[in-house]
Nucleic acid binder design. Structure first.
Lengths: 147, 147
DNA sequence: CTCACTGCAAATGCTTTGCACTATA
DNA sequence: TATAGTGCAAAGCATTTGCAGTGAG
């Protein structure tokens, strides 16, 4: 864990405390797993990671804590990336997108954002205050293009 | 139904025939409902519309035909627009995106695309042939901002 | 006449919820 | 101690699938 993400773990936990949430071992572990991961995870993926340490942890607890963290604004739910279930990503993660290969289904991070920053102003004219955006890119990867 | 969308209905049906699919009353009706609609619909919304004419039509058939049309490339599944189920949109519909209010959940079409066209070239350098993209915008609408 | 398509019913998979017990604050 | 959080089991949805009957080509 880097120094930067260590600060983030503390940030999340203290934000939980501020809001009156109790810090349980399961909740703390869940936050740590999310921080350790560099990509967005689904509820069951997080569950699998947690079960290594906490054999007894239930999937319901994972879901409930994910909701808490979303309400807190520490986590963003992404319904995208293929057709699977919802994935959760920490808001600290630097802004980026993913491209999914429509043939093999593999996904890759795209480290830049092709969305025009002017969008915020244009949306304001439409009456909207932009909170966040998520761009799904679908394409054919090099390997699949070759075959 | 406009002349333009009438052409599209014929296009879809003939594309189905070309691929060896049979044209059933249910399948034909489903295509028509999609064309009549100006927005992306969920499977059950389409089912409700179809039941007006075909009381006996089953939801399974709706799902199966939606998959056929997606495979055919005539329909695009959108997992976004709030937290609900998947919605389907005809590819003929002019390219646009939606913004969803994070407070009330209402969505609105945004008739322009803020994605940099340069993206296609950049992705090619990464080895990807871009097929399509979907941009999810989340914000707070005027009404919710006021209250 | 053949086999894709359909309706039915049951199964699946993800997510949520009620309840009684546990443990944080 | 009070009550938020937990595990368990069961319920809810959206979606998928097996099967036998039906109908398009």
């Amino acid at each position: 864990m880097t120094l930067n993400s260590a600060i983030n773990a503390v940030t999340v936990v203290s934000r939980l405390k501020d809001k009156g949430y109790r810090i349980t071992a399961q909740r703390q572990a869940l936050v740590e797993k999310l921080i350790e991961s560099d990509k967005a995870l689904s509820a069951s993926e997080i569950w699998e990671k947690l079960k290594v340490q906490y054999k007894e942890i239930s999937l319901d607890t994972v879901y409930r804590n994910l909701h808490v963290l979303v309400d807190l604004g520490a986590l963003i739910p992404i319904n995208a990336m293929g057709k699977d279930s919802v994935r959760y990503e920490l808001v600290f993660t630097s802004h980026h997108h993913h491209i999914v290969c429509v043939k093999c289904g593999k996904s890759q991070c795209i480290d830049f954002c092709p969305v025009d920053p002017q969008l915020i102003i244009t949306l304001k004219k439409h009456g909207y205050e932009l909170v966040r955006h998520n761009l799904e890119l679908f394409g054919v990867c090099r390997q699949c293009n070759a075959s």
